[in-house]
Amino acid sequence: MKTVLEVEELTVDIPTEQGEVHAVKGVSFNLNEGETLCLVGESGSGKSMTALSIIGLQTPKARIGAKRLTLLGKPLHTLSQRQLDQIRGKDIAIIFQDPMTALNPTLTIERQMIEGMMRHEGVNRRTARERAIDLLNKVGIPQAAERLYQYPHQFSGGQRQRIMIAMALMGKPSLLIADEPTTALDVTIQAQILELIRSLSQQLNFSLLMITHDFGVVSAMADKVCVMYQGEIVESGTAREVLEHPRHPYTQGLIACIPVPGRTAPGSRLPVIEHPLLLKEQP
């Protein structure tokens, strides 16, 4: 099976007035073609910083180091911003948490979708527009050809996230990063968006790196899981291994916080993770 993404001993250090923050500490994982890997952890665990540093969108002052950071065998961490611009939107794409802030409110959906494809692939506007319409149809936007000329505020939250997914897929990426793509949506729409991403990943055979704090998302989406705590991966394995036999106390704590229908009594208090944990993997 072809390896799409290799990450070995990735570090991200951010200088501050109070000293250097080690946001990511020696993170390693790999992602094969067509696989979905979920990075799981609480806010501040380093999962989003890990994903953003892969695509070169980390905070400007951050310093990235890695023994190996490759996409389809090509190194990423040594590229200039200009070289990364040639990769982003083509070989790697990203879906952000809040589509209303990720989409430009002053531009039509058409313009936001076709510009990247025209630049990266050198196609004309008509060809790019046809692909945009096809993808909007695939993600479930009705009357796609007409709605292509509307603005973000004319769509619902769920529709805007579907547009973000379609936009990310315009360049036929090998790797799609989804940074908590359902956080701003209600529960019913969340399920629809997750099913859409899962279905498209199977149809189009791209690899998916999903950032989440929700083990419900993991159970629905993941082939592999990496659990992050304080910038480190404290447990990794297949989704089944981690969900059914969690070894690390932090993973156990995250799973214990999930209410289970039929087992969690209504009105009862859910367990609370005490910090700091003893970061020692259990046998």
Rank of each mutant, 00 (worst) to 15 (best):
Leu84Phe: 09
Thr50Asn: 00
Pro15Val: 02
Ala145Val: 12
Gly216Phe: 01
Asn124Lys: 13
Arg269His: 12
Arg63Lys: 12
Arg269Gly: 06
Tyr250Lys: 11
Glu121Val: 15
Ser45Leu: 07
Ala265Asn: 13
Gln192Asp: 05
His77Thr: 01
Pro173Lys: 04
Thr108Ala: 15
Leu270Arg: 08
Arg68Ile: 08
Pro99His: 03
Ile193Asn: 08
Thr16Gly: 02
Glu146Phe: 10
Leu185Met: 02
Ser43Phe: 00
Glu195Asn: 03
Gly122Ala: 11
Pro246His: 12
Tyr229Trp: 11
Gln150Leu: 09
Ala220Asn: 12
Arg162Ser: 07
Gly116Ser: 14
Thr264Gln: 14
Gly89Tyr: 03
Val217Pro: 07
Lys224Asn: 09
Asp179Ala: 04
Arg247Thr: 07
Ala132Val: 06
Ala23Phe: 04
Thr11Ile: 01
Asp214His: 12
Gly65Ser: 12
Gly157Cys: 02
Glu180Ala: 01
Ala256Lys: 15
Thr50Lys: 03
Tyr250Ala: 04
Gly253Asp: 04
Ile163Pro: 10
Asn124Asp: 15
Glu35Thr: 02
Ala256Glu: 12
Val218Phe: 13
Ala51Thr: 01
Arg240Asn: 12
Arg125Leu: 10
Ile109Glu: 01
Glu281Lys: 15
Glu115His: 06
Asn124Tyr: 14
Gln190Met: 02
Glu274Ile: 15
Cys38Lys: 12
Ala66Phe: 00
Asn104Tyr: 03
Ser45Trp: 03
Lys138Leu: 15
Ile273Arg: 11
Lys224His: 08
Ala62Cys: 03
Gln252His: 09
Tyr149Pro: 13
Glu110Ser: 15
Lys25Glu: 05
Ala62Pro: 03
Asn30Lys: 08
Arg131Asn: 14
Glu42Leu: 04
Cys226Gln: 09
Gly116Ile: 13
Pro173Glu: 07
Glu20Asn: 05
Leu169Gly: 09
Val272Gly: 09
Ala62Asn: 02
Gly41Phe: 01
Tyr149Phe: 13
Gln58Asn: 08
Arg198Cys: 05
Ile95Gly: 07
Leu176Asp: 01
Asp91Gly: 08
Tyr151Val: 12
Tyr250Cys: 09
Val21Met: 03
Glu17Leu: 14
Cys226Asp: 07
Leu254His: 04
Ser219Met: 13
Asp134Trp: 15
Lys67Gln: 14
Ile64Leu: 02
Met1Thr: 09
Thr251Glu: 08
Gly56Pro: 05
Asn32His: 15
Asn205Ser: 09
Thr264Phe: 11
Glu274Tyr: 10
Thr50His: 01
Glu180Met: 05
Thr78Phe: 03
Pro142Lys: 13
Leu72Glu: 12
Leu209Glu: 05
Val21Glu: 00
Leu204Gly: 04
Ile197Val: 13
Pro60Glu: 07
Gln143Pro: 07
Gln190Asp: 02
Lys74Glu: 15
Glu235Tyr: 04
Tyr250Gly: 06
Ser236Tyr: 10
Glu115Ala: 10
Ile133Arg: 01
Ser199Cys: 06
Lys2Ser: 14
Pro261Gln: 10
Ile273Lys: 07
Ile133Gln: 06
Pro276Ser: 11
Ile273His: 07
Val139Ala: 11
Phe206Asp: 03
Asp85Val: 10
Lys47Ala: 02
Ala145Ile: 13
Ala144Arg: 10
Thr50Trp: 06
Gly253Pro: 04
Gln161Pro: 11
Ala144Lys: 04
Ile87Arg: 13
Pro181Gln: 01
Ala128Val: 11
Val12Asp: 00
Met49Gln: 00
